[in-house]
Computed example of a mutant assay.
Amino acid sequence: MTQPYPLKFQPDFQERVWGGRALERFGLDLPDGVIGEGWMIADHPNGVSTVVNGELAGLGLDAVREKLGREWFGSKGYKEDARFPLLVKLLDCNDDLSVQVHPTDDYEGLPQGELGKTEMWYVLDAKPGAKIIYGLKEGVDREQLREALESGNVMDTLQEVPVSAGDTFYIPAGTVHALCAGVLVAEIQQNSDTTYRIYDYNRPGLDGKPRELHIEHSLNVTAYEGAGATSMKTDGAKPGEWLRLAHSPYFIVEKGMVSEKWELSAAPDSFTILVICEGSGHLTWEGGSQPYAAGECYLIPASLSSYAIEGQSTLLRAYLP
């Protein structure tokens, strides 16, 4: 019987026209090219992360799900014939991402087998003057958005928000948004790869051709009255306490700071995900220890009744509501 322990993964890296090489700062061995996304904990047809530590080393998260999912993911995290419910990424935005919007689970136009996409961002780093696009300006409706797209004035309908390290943004499905150049972000989201592009700055993709836009889908799924997006500064986080950043139907995300040994326990009905934002130390549990460092992500099994975090670090904790 495999004893539960924190799983560390080899990410699946994704090249993007807006990517760069900034993820190398975390000691990640990037493939050639402009790498925009590290899929750190992933169980999706477009990318699967692979365990690199312990007894399960070499198995993809999909294989872990098939072998141990009912026990390790908890009653909330495991469903027969369903993939792992969340997708955890690190994003290097060396250039602006497309202006985009994601659908809800019940959108009729979803690709076969896909979910909607509600997500949240935690800003790991931001260059001076960095910003994001975060929602429509007040009063913009479907026809105004369509007219702006047709006239080439879509940027006039969008809200721009300055960002700095430690900012967090909750982005429910239906929220028009875009990360912009100069930010490094941890993203926790539904396990979906469905994005509808509204506008892409008339630039070529990696193949030299314009990337596809999805105007009608975008107009259909946009929440013109707002979808409940919220943002906050996280300077108030205190050592040994969890600061709630996002609470959605799909995930709860909290920020914690470690300054001494912090004893914790896994929820019996849900796995826990840890994203190390800054610092280093050790994860310890009965019979084992694992060094951790910034940029790493861990899956704590629901069946691991207790564990501890030691060192000096800032981290995110995500689990199912």
Rank of each mutant, 00 (worst) to 15 (best):
T2M: 15
P6W: 04
L7M: 04
F9G: 02
F9K: 09
P11D: 00
Q14N: 07
G20F: 02
G20V: 03
R21T: 11
R21F: 05
R21G: 01
R21H: 14
A22T: 03
L28T: 05
L30Y: 05
V34Q: 14
M40W: 13
A42M: 06
H44C: 00
H44Y: 12
V48Y: 13
V48M: 15
G54F: 00
G54S: 02
E55F: 08
A63D: 15
R65H: 11
G74R: 03
G77F: 09
Y78G: 05
Y78M: 04
K79I: 00
E80Y: 11
L86M: 11
K89Q: 09
L90Q: 06
L91H: 08
D92Q: 04
N94F: 11
N94M: 09
D95L: 14
D95R: 13
D96F: 09
D96Q: 12
H102L: 05
H102T: 06
D105T: 01
D105G: 05
Y107F: 12
G109W: 06
L115A: 12
G116M: 11
E119Q: 04
A126L: 03
A126Y: 02
A130C: 12
K131C: 08
K131E: 15
I133W: 03
Y134H: 14
G135N: 01
L136Y: 00
G139L: 11
G139D: 05
V140Y: 04
R142I: 01
L145F: 01
L145N: 00
R146E: 14
E147G: 11
E147T: 09
A148F: 04
V154N: 01
V154Y: 04
V154S: 02
Q159V: 13
P162T: 04
S164L: 11
G166D: 08
D167A: 10
F169N: 12
Y170D: 11
I171E: 03
V176M: 08
A178I: 05
A181K: 12
G182C: 00
G182S: 01
Q189K: 03
S192Y: 09
D193W: 12
T194L: 05
T195W: 10
Y199N: 06
Y201E: 04
P204M: 12
G205Q: 06
G205I: 00
D207N: 08
D207Y: 05
G208T: 01
L213S: 06
A223L: 01
A223S: 15
T230W: 15
K233Q: 12
T234A: 12
A246M: 07
S248E: 02
Y250R: 01
E254W: 05
G256L: 03
M257V: 15
M257K: 10
E260G: 09
L264Q: 11
A266S: 14
A267I: 07
P268V: 11
S270W: 05
V275W: 13
I276W: 02
I276P: 07
L283W: 06
T284C: 09
G287D: 00
G288L: 00
A294P: 04
G295P: 12
G295M: 03
Y298A: 10
I300T: 04
L304Q: 07
S305D: 14
S306H: 08
S306N: 07
S306E: 09
A308N: 09
I309H: 01
E310R: 07
S313I: 03
R317P: 02
P321N: 09
